[in-house]
């Protein structure tokens, strides 16, 4: 292929560019790198079991509790993912909030990884037992004062 033919080809392509703007844009170089990283999955639900879909999630980096490091919204299932900066070890804070309901979770991030936390989700049996204990206390109080009054 001689120089003239290549030049003609380039000129022809240059003429085509404005005609095919979309294709030209797609021809820009793109470099996609996929790297597995240790991410944090936040799952938020109300204590009745319903997911906090659309809850606002705010992540605070260690040592900076006033300035949000990341801001996002939980998905339909109340899930939210983020990758903490490994260069900033310490206690990361995740605040989940929706309609005045919310929770602050603290995560320990150090060189070796992320220590996860689980909320204090009580089982139904635990709840029933605790409620029964308090109820029994109330009945006892009632009986005590009824007897004293009689």
């Amino acid at each position: 292929m001689d120089i003239a033919r290549i030049t003609t080809l380039i000129v022809a392509m240059a003429f085509l560019l404005p005609v095919l703007p979309v294709q030209a844009a797609m021809a820009h170089g793109v470099d996609v790198t996929v790297t597995p990283r240790e991410a944090v999955e936040v799952v938020a639900s109300f204590d009745g079991g319903d997911p906090m879909s659309g809850a606002q999630v705010t992540v605070f980096a260690p040592g900076d509790p006033a300035e949000p490091w990341l801001q996002g919204t939980a998905d339909e299932e109340g899930r939210f993912y983020f990758v903490p900066d490994p260069a900033r070890p310490g206690t990361w804070e995740v605040r989940v909030r929706q309609a005045g309901h919310g929770e602050i979770i603290r995560l320990e991030v150090d060189g070796s990884g992320i220590a996860g936390t689980t909320g204090t989700g009580l089982t139904a049996l635990q709840k029933v037992l605790m409620a029964a204990a308090v109820g029994w206390g109330a009945i006892g109080t009632a009986l005590y004062f009824k007897r004293r009054a009689a």
Partner: peptide, 12 residues
């Protein structure tokens, strides 16, 4: 104290 039994049960 008379009202306490009722109050206690309703608190529960």
């Amino acid at each position: 104290r008379q009202g306490i039994p009722k109050a206690s049960l309703l608190t529960a």
